[in-house]
Design a protein around this nucleic acid. Sequence first.
DNA 1: GTGAAAGCGCTAACAT
DNA 2: ATGTTAGCGCTTTCAC
Lengths: 363, 363
Amino acid sequence: MRGGGAVRSGEALAVSQASRVSMQEVADRAGVALSSVSRVVSGHRDVSPVMRERVLRVVADLGYEPDILARSLRRGQTMTVGFVVGNIANPLLAEIALGAETRLREAGYAMLLANSMDDPALDSAHIRLFRQRRVDGLLLSLTDDRDPDLAAELARANVPAVLVDRDAARYPGVAAVLYDHASGGERATEALIELGHTHLALINGPPASRPARERASALRRVLRRHPEAAGLVRSGAFSAQHGESTMASLLAQDNEAVPTAVIAGSNQILVGVLRALRRANVIIPKDLSVVTCDDQPLSELFDPPLATISRQPHELGEVSAELLLEQLNGGPARSVVLPTSFRPTESCAPPRQPARRRRGGGG
Amino acid sequence: MRGGGAVRSGEALAVSQASRVSMQEVADRAGVALSSVSRVVSGHRDVSPVMRERVLRVVADLGYEPDILARSLRRGQTMTVGFVVGNIANPLLAEIALGAETRLREAGYAMLLANSMDDPALDSAHIRLFRQRRVDGLLLSLTDDRDPDLAAELARANVPAVLVDRDAARYPGVAAVLYDHASGGERATEALIELGHTHLALINGPPASRPARERASALRRVLRRHPEAAGLVRSGAFSAQHGESTMASLLAQDNEAVPTAVIAGSNQILVGVLRALRRANVIIPKDLSVVTCDDQPLSELFDPPLATISRQPHELGEVSAELLLEQLNGGPARSVVLPTSFRPTESCAPPRQPARRRRGGGG
DNA sequence: GTGAAAGCGCTAACAT
DNA sequence: ATGTTAGCGCTTTCAC
């Protein structure tokens, strides 16, 4: 059960031996210099076929594997990327992480993952730790992209970084992949207004989060174009609790003021919204039209299926990785915008008592 | 934009300087030996207060940060754990990863994440890569826990490992955290039989996966105790496609043979099952009782809410990390079993035409 | 308690 | 084309 060390009789025992084989041992056994082994193993070109074969045979015999740690120290690059994520249990972020990891691995990079649990201080701490581990680059889905500490922390890291749907304004020279939340959000809002809704509500995430900010401004922009409609934004956590309590309080208002259409600002918020609606026996879409953000496996199977402002998180992950790789290969820090779309369904219908409507509804 | 190197005039420029500060520089600046700085930074005890203060002041002035890479090479441990996961986009695995990462980080470990995309060859490849990166331990949620290549690969790694709800039979000395799928599965099956169902179906994952195997054997065990009931198991991928095509083919049978109750073996399979049911206009639970495995955010909000065989994935992640840490601290490889439970809901009801029933149904 | 020195496993000059 | 050598930044004997 102990490692090697006691066993000395006879020759090396080949593959199944537990102890790690060093490059020096390979060199000794092959009767060549350490550096020659290095050249063969690292795939250098100035190596004779004879040398190559001779070394590779011993490598196979001894089951030698390069020590990436030592290589990293010497080369000054770790072939490792750090991904700071709010919470990997968020299916959206998990999908992004999958896309990113897949692409990075193709390029030979490994991915360190750290969850910040919606705590900006942890975001900073993770960046610091990753820096000490000498990661070659960072993928950042930050809790608060306006945190000044973070900008300093990031600058110190002095490695390429890509912001994942976060505002790059405070981080000069840092790349970003951004969703065009505006287009999907505007289309959704306009669709609701066209159905005759004049009382809209967006139960939103926190203003620290770019997606929440963008969705709020999209709503407001559309409302400015439509004086016949009014809307309100309720900011809060990306949580079911925020969704539930906010929806409940909206329903508890005077009948006149109760919104006839609601947009849930995330999948967790949606869960809370639906709980509140069920408890109040509110029927979708008869009593209330509902739109949600981001696809969820079961939402298509609801009765009615839920209208969704959707995006492609896997693609976001891939593109994030791509932008990081470009920088790691010496390229500039580019930024990219990805589209969002609106998929209307029967969860949106004309309001029951259209207050002050202009156009007559069809069918 | 270039790194440091040209700047030589005057003193070091303190914190905001981009270039990395080495321990040697700290030692020079403080006028002490390199080894003394190391002792202070590593928190050794045999250090005088004077020395400690003197060094820490320079550390702060220069913004020195230890290089974990170099430390790892010297100490022979990287404070890094590798997590091989089928697909982090699976919410169950994401929750597990979150629990594990949180616990590992508390203990000072970072987590490398690699997705195997249900490809056993990638599982092996990841283990090999993690080994070359000299991770201190492994967390493994394998595609196929009966793969012989993998056992060899794992043995070569020669580091502590914990199997995450995978069978440890082939991996001597490897710890495991296992769900007791049997108890939840048996309770669910028995509940269905008590409702009067005699035609059960389990649309299951692949036999390569322990959870799928355990659920199948739980079903069969219960059926053996209940000669009045029959059931069938349809193995396949953990995919919506498998769920949909299998459910559709079950519905297409002679009326007599169509199951009156179905258990979906995963959240993806559930999606497919529900699609098939919707297309066939099958009403739950009037035409068919439905049970699913693993909680999903929206399943409670279905009408009716879906009966669920559930487990605590976050806890699984924490316990996995805990078992790994025990080994990393020199302890033995323990294994732990966690419970599963069955939450019945109105998605389960007596069958419409109870073929050959004994007991009369209530209410 | 502190300093000097060896070396973790590897790569990349630099020689030849 | 191959060998020799000097480190990457750190920890840890070993002397004193």
